[in-house]
Amino acid sequence: MLKNVFKIFSRDLKIARRDSMALVIMIMPVLLAVGLVFFVPGLNDTTVNIALLDSDTSEHVAYLDQFAKIEVFGGENELMDRVAKRDDVAAIIPDGNGYEIILQGNEPEMVENYAKALNALYEIGATKEETTAAMYSFGHTVSPVKTMLVNMLISMIIMLSGMLIAISIVGEKSDNTINAVNVTPASQTAFVLGKSMMGGLIALLSIIASLIITGYYDINWFMIILVGLSSMLLSLIVGFVQGLASDDVIEAAANVKMIIIPIAGSIAGYELLADKWQWTMYWSPFYWAYKANMLVLSKTADWPTVLLCTGMVLVLSLAVYFFSRPKIREGLS
């Protein structure tokens, strides 16, 4: 059987060389990972944005520059236009002997509080040197925002690898090759395994490449590969169920859209739900995969937790498989 599995796999590999889709699914996560490397620092540097007039004292500008992103404008009209734009910027302009803070009115409370606190500290002459605070650091260099985005990228790779399998199956159906396979010595199981290898391999390689590019060299690679393998199974089942349930690419595309809901829902649930409500997401294998990746990437994972998460991914994925097995069998025959 193994021989047949590899024959189907090598046939898919040949087709993939002629077809840009597999190549794109392999290359795109890598490009996105490169994009993340450049994009994340800007996303992380967001305390508060302040607009000032160039007629302001250089001392005031330099003082605020230590704590906030500063933009300087030639005139009051220009400055007002900036405040009125759609992002959050607070202006601080000279007013008599003091300063006036100008806001558009729709900024989060935090922006107003920051602007008031910074100007108040300037007015009372507070300096960093006179601080009563001492700072200590754990030396972590990777921000949680970056970890979250990289983890989202991994979820996307899982979805796309499933999509690759789904579209490949739809192609087989339209070419009537599934029926042809039924009269060859290759069993249905060999066909399923052979078709799965391509998507699974792409998922695993893309995840590893993305992690190396985004700088996660010193994570526990055994853990990440274990989670990657369980995620691979997940993408295979998703792909097969989608592919066999779809008669054409439109339906495959619609099915991909449907799978976005549990993936996005699992990420949102993990990130936004309070601890006491996390259990409401336990039904989703994507939730467990996302959680396990998050723990490994933030280097807070231990083996029992990783094994529990991967175990849950496997159990839930197999439950989906056994639930959809009659459909898969029907679709293959």
Partner: peptide, 14 residues
């Protein structure tokens, strides 16, 4: 600090 923060003059455009 609190007293100085409370004395800040804030204008909202709308």
């Amino acid at each position: 600090v609190e007293a100085s923060v409370d004395n800040q003059n804030v204008r909202k455009l709308g």
